[in-house]
Simulated assay, not measured.
Amino acid sequence: MTEQESTHPEGSIFKTDGSSKPCRACADFKTWMKLGGPTSSKTNNSKQSQEEKPKETNNTKDNIVNIDSKADTSSKEKTSETKRENIESPVLDLAVRDQKAAICPPDSLELGSATWTFLHSVAAYYPDNPTDQHKQDALNLINSLPRLYPCAPCAEDLAVDLPNHPPQVENSKQFSEWMCRLHNRVNVKLGKPEFDCSKVFLRWRYGWEDGSCD
């Protein structure tokens, strides 16, 4: 799988591959940005409503009826808008859930899962034609883990593994499959099943072909 240059305007948060599938790592950020719209719009509408509210006069009872009718309509519209926001904001619900789950320090399993997610994602989005700086940065990242990783036994095990299986960072496919093999060696030690490394991009970048990640 190779990545082509994006045909989207400069500044777009989406990048595309040959099949024009969006950059999955940007999707939630795009949704989050959109969530600011209704809030901002609601504030502006409220200010405009107050400015445009007709002044009550003593001319006739019809004026009072008209004002009450507009107020009732505005109230219904606000209620409908609130319902829409509740329906269209699943990302906020997930953020609240994740925030509650993240109030305690991670144990080794949580730390390991988060670390693998990060490393696989870095490899999956690594350039197909990396510069020398990209390559050096990738090597620095991997080679620093035995010294910096918080779980001492895990770090020590990685320190033994890396000299025998040095990082391969010539392109995204090579880096991703190397990362997968590293993960599989750890899985074997832990008695877990191995992952099919030919499917790393489906797992960590594009999503499964059945659309279950869409």
Rank of each mutant, 00 (worst) to 15 (best):
M1G: 04
M1W: 10
T2R: 04
T7Y: 09
I13D: 01
K15N: 06
S20A: 13
F29Q: 07
T31S: 13
T31M: 10
G36R: 07
G37R: 02
T39P: 01
S40T: 11
E51S: 12
E51I: 13
P54W: 11
N59D: 14
K61H: 14
A71S: 10
S75Y: 14
K76Y: 12
E77T: 13
K78F: 12
T79R: 14
T82P: 04
N86G: 13
D98P: 00
L109H: 08
E110F: 06
E110C: 12
S113I: 10
H120G: 00
S121A: 06
A123I: 00
A123T: 02
A124S: 03
A124Q: 01
Y125Q: 01
K135E: 09
L141H: 04
R147L: 15
C151H: 15
C151P: 10
C151Y: 14
C154L: 12
N164Y: 05
V169Y: 02
Q174K: 06
F175Q: 02
S176Q: 06
W178I: 00
R185S: 01
R185D: 07
K189G: 07
L190T: 13
D196I: 07
K199P: 03
K199I: 06
V200C: 06
F201N: 01
L202A: 15
W204G: 01
Y206H: 11
G211S: 00
